[in-house]
Amino acid sequence: MQHIFTIDGERADAWLSPSGTSYALIHEGEVTPVKLTEQTGNRAVLTLDGQDTPITIVTINDQVWVHIDGAAHEVVLQSAIDFLGSADGGASSGTILAPMPGTVISVQVAVGDAVSIGETLMIIESMKLETAIKAPRDGVIETLGFAAGQTFDQNALLVTLEGED
C-alpha cells in the first residue's frame, strides 16, 4: 500500500523507495529517481530523472507547503487508517452505545441535526465522571435514546446517526 497524500485536498498516492544511497518515487506505476538538495531560506532544488526544479518548501508535522512552478500547494500525508476508515463511513457504524451505566447531564443536539465528526452530542455522567459523547463520523441525528436527567444501562443505545456521511 502506498502512502496516501492529499494535494490541495485531492487524493494522490505515492511511495518513497530507497534506491541505493538515494531515493526513488513510486507513483502511478512509474519509478522515478528523486533527490532534494536543500538550500537556505526553505529553498531547495528538486531533481527528478535528472531534471531540476527550484522550489520553496516547508514542513509542519505531516503537512508540506511547496511552491513550485509559480504556485503554492498544500500536501498532507494522510493517516491511511483514518483516511480509508472514513472513506465509506463504515469505520463507525453510527450507533453509539453507552460505555457504562450513568445519567444524561445534557443533550446538545436534536433529531435531524447535521453533525460533524468529533462534535459533542451529549454529556453523560457515570462514576462521578462527566464524559462527552461525540459524533463518530459526520451524519444526521436519527434517534436520541435519552433526555437530560434520564439514566441508562451499559450498552444502552444513546444516539444513532443516519446512513449518510
Binding site: A80, L84, G85, A87, D88, G90, L97
Partner: peptide
C-alpha cells in the same frame, strides 16, 4: 462488531479491506 465489542476474539474492526490493510501495516 460482535467480535470486537463483545467476545474480544478480534481486535480491530475495519470498514473495508483497504482500511484493514492500513491497520495491519501499522
Amino acid at each position: 462488531d460482535m467480535h470486537t465489542t463483545v467476545s474480544g476474539t478480534a481486535d480491530y474492526p475495519a470498514a473495508n479491506e483497504p482500511h484493514a490493510f492500513a491497520i495491519a501495516r501499522e
